[in-house]
Design a protein around this nucleic acid. Structure first.
Lengths: 162, 162
DNA sequence: GCTTAATTTCATTTATTAATGAAATAATTG
DNA sequence: CAATTATTTCATTAATAAATGAAATTAAGC
């Protein structure tokens, strides 16, 4: 795996900058934005060593970043004939990126919330009876959020298709 | 400002735990989740020193956290007669929380993207003519995302009402 | 099936972000 | 309007998260 240092063009750097900002809004590391941005703007699939060289990032960062981007379905491995290395290209449909984030990050969290609510409800037994009403209504609110959250994600993903 | 250490009840701790996880999904500090969770589950508005005591957090964290939560419109200051201190209560409508996050975090980012696109487009002049088509189509894709993102936010905020 | 190359994993380092609390500022009260 | 109390700000510290790269693992080519 020979790492060549071929620096970014102005256009590439600008595009990557946009994606770095974007991923940071949802709390993802900048390397994720860099890798995705590069693969998005570049015309052909790239291998990991090419990505490392262009972005000046380490092996570990490249490998882990690509792993997460694949989990999000934001990047896919493509077969390049006669090449031993894996090659990667960006999935350029917005829907897929959103779907990946929701499916991998948000939905699991909503699952955990559902579980925690089941732990929480029995605890109301020990609450003084004059306060139980308030607590119950608040917990019901969280339950509604939890359910509607799952719903909303479905709706949004069906709606967006660009 | 006398800080009393009154520890959290089991129910309070569980609810706060849910909100801490939730805010971390969108990359916000856990203190934000703690403060919001506490104000959400508690039956009456609390002052900053009460919040500090209950959560065992510092003055700075409490002040900054409340500031951000107010910017999000997730928490509001309420007037308590005969009290010098400010009191705070949680805004329990999901719509408001979402709206706050989008308005304060996402929309500004979409603005920046719009600006960066204007910087980016002229750079295409210097790109070899056989590659210009590809770059142009990718940049157009970002422009579409940018516009549709603004749209989507509106739609979602109009849709959700829980 | 042995060798070499590619990729992943993970303990450590580095960088980033959040929390702290003292000092500055603002607001309230007598 | 002076004195006290509440709140904000911000430089520093602490905690967290990301990046690194060597070692382990996996896979390809001969």
């Amino acid at each position: 795996m020979e790492i060549q240092t071929e620096s970014l063009t102005e256009v590439e750097a600008e595009v990557i900058d946009i994606f770095v900002r974007a991923v940071q809004v949802i709390g993802l590391p900048k390397s994720i934005g860099e890798i995705y941005g590069l693969l998005f703007i570049v015309p052909a699939p790239m291998s990991m060593d090419q990505i490392m060289g262009k972005l000046q990032i380490s092996l570990g960062t490249a490998s882990q970043g690509l792993k997460q981007l694949r989990a999000f379905k934001a990047v896919k491995a493509v077969y390049v004939p006669g090449e031993r290395k894996d090659f990667f290209s960006a999935e350029s449909e917005f829907r897929k990126l959103m779907a990946g984030f929701f499916k991998e990050e948000v939905s699991p969290q909503l699952e955990v919330t559902a579980e925690r609510l089941q732990v929480l409800k029995p605890l109301l037994e020990n609450v003084p009876s004059d306060q139980v009403g308030h607590y119950r209504s608040r917990i019901e609110k969280i339950e509604r959020w939890q359910k509607n959250g799952l719903n909303l994600i479905d709706k949004v993903l069906k709606f967006i298709d660009f």
